[in-house]
Simulated scan of single mutants.
Amino acid sequence: MELEIRQQHMIEKQEELNEKLKHFNKGRKTWSRIDSVFKTLSVVLTVGTTVATAVTGGLMVPVLIPTVLATITAIQTSSCGLIAIGYTSKQKSYYKKKTEILNTYLNKLFIFFERSREDKNITIEELEEFNEILDKFDKEISVMKVKKNT
């Protein structure tokens, strides 16, 4: 009976980590999509305003209009580029790192669990070691949260 309770505890903790992994992967995919949207938007807007600048430049309109369009192109390109490079890339990297850490700990826990289960006896020491691995994971992830916010 005691063995089953310990096994169930280990299984539940691994399932919790698998749920976190799904969440981190979802965040990573979301930020990848956002990054792609900003990059695509940047290209489309740049091409559009460049074409507009070229067309108005050849139509003998006042010099002010092509100059304004060129300025808009420069501002738009730099702002979309900064967002894509600065913010979305950091978010993608953040979730990728979290996913890698979580995968590492899930592998450790799985191997530990299987090794403990092989001898059909999960001792209190083994359970404590399992919980220590979970604590190390929590500490490593919480350090990442602090780095992200600063």
Rank of each mutant, 00 (worst) to 15 (best):
E2M: 05
E2K: 10
E2I: 01
L3A: 06
L3V: 09
I5A: 11
I5G: 07
R6V: 02
R6I: 05
Q8C: 07
Q8V: 01
H9D: 01
M10F: 00
E12H: 03
K13Y: 07
Q14E: 11
E15C: 04
E16M: 09
L17Y: 10
N18Q: 14
N18S: 08
K20V: 00
K22S: 09
N25E: 12
K26H: 13
G27Q: 03
G27I: 01
R28S: 12
K29M: 03
T30I: 11
W31Y: 14
S32W: 04
R33F: 14
I34T: 04
D35V: 00
D35R: 03
D35Q: 12
V37K: 02
T40F: 11
T40M: 09
V43A: 11
V43E: 04
T46R: 00
V47S: 01
T53A: 14
A54E: 07
A54V: 15
V55A: 11
T56E: 08
T56K: 10
G57S: 13
G57D: 11
G57K: 12
L59E: 06
L59I: 05
M60V: 01
V61A: 05
P66V: 11
T71N: 14
I72T: 09
I72Y: 09
I72M: 08
T73A: 01
T73H: 03
T73N: 10
C80A: 12
C80W: 02
G81C: 09
L82C: 09
A84R: 03
I85N: 13
G86V: 05
G86K: 06
Y87C: 03
Y87P: 02
S89K: 08
S89R: 03
K90L: 13
Q91W: 02
Q91M: 14
K92A: 00
K92Y: 09
S93E: 13
S93H: 13
Y95M: 03
Y95R: 07
K96E: 10
T99V: 05
T99G: 10
L102Y: 03
L102I: 06
L102F: 02
N103I: 01
T104P: 03
T104L: 08
Y105H: 09
Y105E: 02
N107I: 05
K108A: 06
F112Q: 07
F112Y: 05
F113R: 14
E114A: 06
E118P: 00
K120Y: 08
T123E: 04
I124H: 06
E125G: 01
E125M: 02
E126W: 04
E126G: 04
L127S: 03
L127Q: 05
E128S: 12
E129A: 10
F130A: 01
N131Y: 00
E132A: 10
I133H: 07
D135K: 15
D135I: 10
D135W: 12
K136Q: 15
F137I: 04
D138V: 05
K139T: 09
S142V: 09
S142F: 08
K147S: 12
K147R: 15
K148R: 15
K148M: 12
N149Q: 15
T150Q: 14
T150E: 15
